[in-house]
Structure formats: C-alpha cells, structure tokens
Amino acid sequence: MAEPRNGNVKTLGIKVPDGLHAQFALVAQLDNISLGDAALRAVELYVNTKKAEPDFAARAASALEEIEREAAARRGAIQGLFGDEAPAAEPAEQTTSRRQGGAAK
C-alpha cells in the first residue's frame, strides 16, 4: 500500500448501509487494521481491478481525448477574446479547496 507523501491526501466520506458497515468494521477488526486503512485498501483494490479490465485503457484514452478537445475549445475561446494578446498560461497549482455544488465522482 502506497503511503501518502507530504500530506497530499483527500478525504472521502461515504454513506454505507448499517449491515455492510457492521461487516466492514468486523473484518477490519479481525485483520487488526483501522476502518480508514481498510477503506484505503478497498479503494486500491477497486482501482487495480478496474485497470485490469480489457476495455479500461481504451475508455481512459477516450476520456483523455475529450479533455484535450475541451481544452482546445476553451483555448480558442480565450484567444478569440484577446486575439494575439492572449494572456500566457501559468502552471496550475494544486489546491485543497473543494468544488462547490457537487461531489467528486
């Protein structure tokens, strides 16, 4: 299990049905680990399972292409506003602020 470095972590809150929570807590207790560690292991297992699916790489490539198309459209819109005097892009900084109006997927 990879350890977070320099505090670069996100908090994830989920709602779990009572019965499943009781089972989850019992399994974690029997493995002598915290619920947080058990949840992290579950997330890692989910990600690794999805990455192993035959069509996952193609779906990820498709999502990346869509991101690039949207970025190009936004870039064009900004250039349309400013012409040749478009402001130079600065490197994005990581932020700890949360998005307003929605939960992460």
Rank of each mutant, 00 (worst) to 15 (best):
Q23R: 00
G76M: 06
V16W: 03
A52I: 00
A2T: 15
Q29N: 10
E85A: 06
F56S: 09
A71L: 09
H21V: 00
L45H: 15
L12V: 15
G83P: 04
P54V: 12
A63P: 00
G7Q: 13
E44C: 05
F24M: 02
V47I: 15
T11I: 13
D84L: 03
Q29Y: 07
L81I: 00
K10T: 15
G36H: 11
D37V: 12
R5D: 13
G76N: 13
V16A: 04
A72H: 11
G83A: 05
R5I: 14
F82Q: 06
Q29T: 10
R69P: 01
T49Y: 08
P87T: 05
R59N: 04
A60Y: 12
Q29K: 10
A42H: 01
V43T: 05
A61S: 08
A42V: 05
K51H: 07
E68S: 09
R5F: 11
A38L: 03
F82I: 02
A60E: 14
L30P: 00
A25E: 03
T11R: 15
P87N: 02
A42N: 04
A61N: 11
A42P: 00
A60K: 13
N32F: 07
A25R: 04
L20E: 09
V47K: 03
A42C: 06
D18F: 02
I67M: 10
I67Y: 14
K50Q: 08
T49R: 07
E44K: 09
G83E: 06
K10W: 15
N32M: 10
R74G: 09
A58Q: 06
T49A: 07
A63F: 12
L40D: 04
A73E: 12
A28Q: 02
A38T: 02
N48F: 04
N8M: 09
R69Q: 12
D18W: 00
P17Q: 07
L35V: 03
A73H: 06
T11E: 10
K50C: 04
K50D: 07
A77Y: 01
E53S: 09
V9R: 15
V27C: 00
R41E: 02
E85R: 01
T11K: 12
L35T: 01
A52H: 09
A2R: 15
S34R: 10
I67N: 07
T11F: 14
I67W: 10
G19I: 01
G36T: 12
A71H: 10
R75Y: 05
A52T: 04
A73C: 02
A52F: 01
Q79K: 07
A58G: 04
G19V: 02
R74C: 11
A61K: 11
A72K: 11
G7D: 15
L35E: 03
P87C: 03
K50L: 03
I33S: 02
I78C: 08
E44L: 12
L64G: 08
A22Q: 10
P4E: 14
R5W: 13
V47L: 09
A71G: 05
D31K: 06
G83H: 03
A61M: 14
R75G: 11
A72N: 06
V43Y: 00
L12G: 12
G80M: 02
A25Y: 00
P17N: 07
P54Q: 06
E66K: 06
D84E: 13
S34N: 11
Q79T: 11
F56Y: 11
V9W: 13
